[in-house]
Design a binder for these strands. Structure first.
Lengths: 252, 252
DNA sequence: CGGGGACTTGATACTGTTCAATTTCCGTGG
DNA sequence: CCACGGAAATTGAACAGTATCAAGTCCCCG
């Protein structure tokens, strides 16, 4: 696959740098905002050339495993979770195509959480040593890497806000709206999609029990906000969901 | 202050590189793990030379403010908080001497949270553009920056676990033990310290109401685990607190 | 020395959990 | 292809943990 790609680069002058680096690996996240020359782009392209397939249930990495690479999800769906020694588990995120995963491992050279495929997926490996090396030469790559790391921090802060100060209904509404927006960004319907995760996993992520997730979804359905049947959801009233997130009782 | 420092560098051969870069600014976090030549160290030293004082209640930065620099806390104590439009606020962290703050702003060039001094504090400014520039030249600085960013991600994951799967008692025990450990690292007593924040702020951080914080602290005192009088805490039984965090009822 | 914020404590209300019983669905093997 | 078995999901009822509301105290700062 890769050689063919390189030929494309050389032959097709009309190909924008963007499309070159992203054609081997649909890395919206990694490539979109960068302005690179063709030559530079090829270097980035080389970096992310390794591609692996994972089946549903497979671990992309396990907590404690030696850190070697970041991973760019090309297709599919993952969850990340941290395990407490006493058996508690907390889902820390759901990741879909175009997102980068594994950044927790940089700090200690070992992964701090598990990443598990929720459906069959393809992933590009980004050897971190080489990424650092290359980003020393390419300021725009460097800047982009920093943005990705920082975005993860901001995302986590949002989840803290959610877990620390929202009620069950609000959390679930935020969750659905977030999925909706992410699917929309990727060209899928923002109002009709499949949940790749179980109620239990949603509950773990949102800090509530699976029964509460189920009840709350049923409640939303009763209000006509959504239609849900097992894992297929339809959001019938996006602004209605927004209202639930907003001031439930008049605060401030 | 800075000129004097440079003279020290030139005259005192016995000064280790570490002590040079840290003498102007007590940046355990930023400097400790790096191996740099004297010349490189001086460059890092130059980078972090700007120092500012903040009084209790002052904002180090506000949400939305343009991103210009990271900040290394030299002395004092800060909190960071995110505000939801409907007035809800969530404290996302308490930062003390030696910690780096402001990394949320890299992703969008604007700060995503407020940082407020909880006591009179001194802070070193680290212009981020120059930090990036220098870290392109110094791989060990680059690596260290990445570790700091990643550590923040790991920290946030820990808080998600706390908020998502622990009960009030456990959260508070974790909180006290975490403070204890951080004070110990800095050479202060791990068992006797002042809380710099209000019950309300602790509650916001831990996802509970101030009354619950107060009650739970009283409860710990009743158990003989701690002694607390307003803001002074004494941890009388560290392993007892650990037990509270551990399996409360036999899980798994 | 006053005033107001911070804190504590109690009584009550409510949200979400726990336990339990069914039902539905999906993958597997006959 | 259908039947089966087990996991996932739904729903109900009782319960537990926190939040809420309300007094009252303490103490820090001006």
């Amino acid at each position: 696959m890769r050689p063919k790609l390189k030929e494309n680069v050389q032959k097709s002058v009309t190909l924008t740098p963007l499309r070159v680096a992203c054609s081997g690996c649909n890395l919206r996240e990694l490539c979109l905002p960068m302005k690179l020359s063709i030559a530079d782009m090829e270097q980035v392209d080389d970096l992310i050339s390794l591609k692996h397939a994972y089946q549903r249930g497979d671990y992309l990495y396990r907590s404690g495993a030696k850190f070697q690479a970041l991973y760019a999800i090309r297709t599919g769906f993952f969850k990340t979770q941290v395990l407490h020694e006493d058996g508690r588990e907390q889902v820390t995120g759901f990741q879909m195509a175009g997102e980068i995963i594994g950044m927790d491992a940089i700090s200690s050279d070992a992964h701090a959480c598990d990443a598990i495929a929720l459906e069959d997926s393809e992933v590009c490996e980004i050897p971190f040593g080489r990424l650092e090396e290359l980003s020393r030469k390419l300021p725009s790559l460097q800047r982009h890497l920093h943005r990705i790391l920082s975005r993860e921090i901001v995302r986590d802060q949002g989840i803290m806000l959610l877990l620390g100060s929202m009620r069950a209904e609000e959390r679930l509404a935020v969750f659905l709206l977030n999925l909706s927006q992410r699917y929309a960004t990727r060209g899928y319907s923002p109002t009709s999609f499949h949940l790749r995760m179980t109620r239990q996993e949603i509950g773990s992520y949102l800090g509530m029990k699976l029964e509460t997730v189920s009840r709350t979804l049923s409640h939303f359905q009763g209000l006509g906000l959504i239609s849900i049947r097992k894992k297929s959801v339809e959001l019938n009233n996006l602004s209605g969901l927004q209202t639930i997130v907003g001031p439930p009782q008049q605060l401030l």
